[in-house]
Design a protein around this nucleic acid. Sequence first.
DNA 1: GGCGGAAATGTTAGTGGCTAACATTGAGTC
DNA 2: GACTCAATGTTAGCCACTAACATTTCCGCC
Lengths: 184, 184
Amino acid sequence: MGGRAERTRERLLTAALELFAERGYDGTSAGEIAARAGVTEMTFFRHFPSKASLLVDDPYDPLIGAAIRQQPAKLDPISRAAKGVRTAWQELLPPSVEEVRVRLRIVARTPALRAAMISGTAATEAVITDALASGGTSHRDARIAAGAVLGALNTALLDWSLTDSDDLSQAIDAALDVLENRHG
Amino acid sequence: MGGRAERTRERLLTAALELFAERGYDGTSAGEIAARAGVTEMTFFRHFPSKASLLVDDPYDPLIGAAIRQQPAKLDPISRAAKGVRTAWQELLPPSVEEVRVRLRIVARTPALRAAMISGTAATEAVITDALASGGTSHRDARIAAGAVLGALNTALLDWSLTDSDDLSQAIDAALDVLENRHG
DNA sequence: GGCGGAAATGTTAGTGGCTAACATTGAGTC
DNA sequence: GACTCAATGTTAGCCACTAACATTTCCGCC
């Protein structure tokens, strides 16, 4: 268990988080991260395709797609996407909410990383779009609903990361509520 | 009028669009653009802060803010933002729709540029958020509504750029309709 | 215990985006 | 024609990232 590669990956990740906390994301180079992990810059890029990928990853896509497909087809696409995203996030309950927040905080404070985060959700957007389209929604409307829900979700996540609340799922609920049940 | 700087800026822009059409965005370096414009790479970066800025710019923010503030305050934030964005886009009617499409098409096909486009809308997001908050909406809900509307709008714009339709405002209408008047 | 082979890492070299410090040219002004 | 200030050029460098090739380290197998 825990092969050599996996251990180096871990060392790189913790070294990166330390350095980001000390000097910030932009003030830390990939070579410095590698050095602290006792490894070469090349090795760093073998384990992480980019510096940004240290902080933005998105392994939750299949769950979201499935949850959306289970929504009643008579609902409008915004409702289905919102409800699906909500239940998917409730189900998985990230192992360590605090660690998620640490990473998101860095992202929220670094413009270049916010762009990378959006890029990273391209796959999620495609998953949501397909799930909605399989429920009878036109492909065009499905794309738009996916864009809207992800726009709201990303904003809510970054917003939450800057607060002191530890209730992540409540923040997501509130965000999707603005979309679904619009109160004046 | 049309000082020297402005003329070089124009030459750089047309040279860039030509090269992008020939070799694609990623296959074109800033130095090559500069060379075709008869200028140095340094000069290029003096006129454009980044290679991406050749294609993504967003001078429409003030209009959007004003249009949102004129919406009736009793409406929910999603409606106000959507209506405001719609009327703002209708008012300005970009001088050359076809030129907008040419640029957006390149953006739509280049992942790195889509990220840059989102980054570029950060200012617009702030404008929408402030306009909504000034109408009594909580700051948190305003941010989320702004994220959702911009997510939908950006998706619609990129989608439209890949079609043959020349009716841009209709595409925007359809997109915001998915958010506002949700039909099953 | 040593041995072979593959996985993991290192070396070297390069491209492209972007920046800074300083020198040079250009165009209009008196 | 000298002065001046904007526009451009020169040089040098940092950082993210990639490719081709050499080297080490682990691990099972005999």
